[in-house]
Amino acid sequence: HEITLHINGRRVKLRFRDEKAAEILKEAAKKGLDEEELKKLAEELWR
C-alpha cells in the first residue's frame, strides 16, 4: 500500500504494509515529523 502525505507543502509518498502502519504514519505527520523521519519510520514499520 502507499499513502501520500502533505508535509511542509510537499507531497511525500510512503509505503506501508497495513492499516495500523498507515495510522502510525498519519499520527507522526500530525506531530510534526519531517520527511526524513517519516521515511525512516515507514521503513521500520515495513519490517
Rank of each mutant, 00 (worst) to 15 (best):
A21T: 08
L45T: 02
T4N: 05
H6Q: 13
K39T: 10
L45H: 02
L25F: 07
R17N: 07
K20L: 09
K13M: 08
V12F: 06
R15P: 07
R17H: 09
E35G: 08
E27L: 11
I24M: 10
I3M: 15
R47S: 13
W46K: 01
A42T: 03
L41K: 03
L5F: 10
L14F: 10
G32V: 04
E37L: 10
F16W: 05
L38P: 00
A21Y: 05
F16E: 00
L38A: 02
K31I: 08
L38V: 09
W46A: 02
H6N: 13
V12Q: 01
A42F: 03
H1W: 15
I24H: 05
H6Y: 15
W46G: 02
D18I: 03
D18E: 08
I24E: 07
I3W: 03
G9R: 02
I7V: 14
I7M: 05
I3K: 01
L41R: 02
H6S: 12
R47T: 14
E37G: 15
W46M: 05
K13C: 07
E36I: 12
I3A: 02
I7P: 02
E35D: 07
A28F: 07
K26Q: 11
T4S: 07
H1K: 13
D18A: 04
K30E: 12
F16H: 08
K39C: 03
L25C: 04
L33K: 08
L41E: 01
L14E: 00
G32E: 04
E44D: 12
L41A: 01
K26N: 06
R15Y: 14
N8M: 06
A42H: 02
K26T: 10
E19P: 13
R10T: 10
I24V: 09
K30C: 04
F16S: 07
R47K: 14
K13T: 15
K20F: 09
K13H: 10
E36R: 12
R11G: 11
K40P: 01
G32W: 05
K30R: 14
I24L: 11
E35Q: 07
R10C: 08
K13S: 07
G32I: 04
A42Y: 03
E44M: 10
K26W: 10
D18M: 03
R15N: 05
E35N: 05
I24Q: 10
I3T: 02
E19L: 11
E23V: 11
K20V: 08
E36V: 13
E43A: 09
L45K: 01
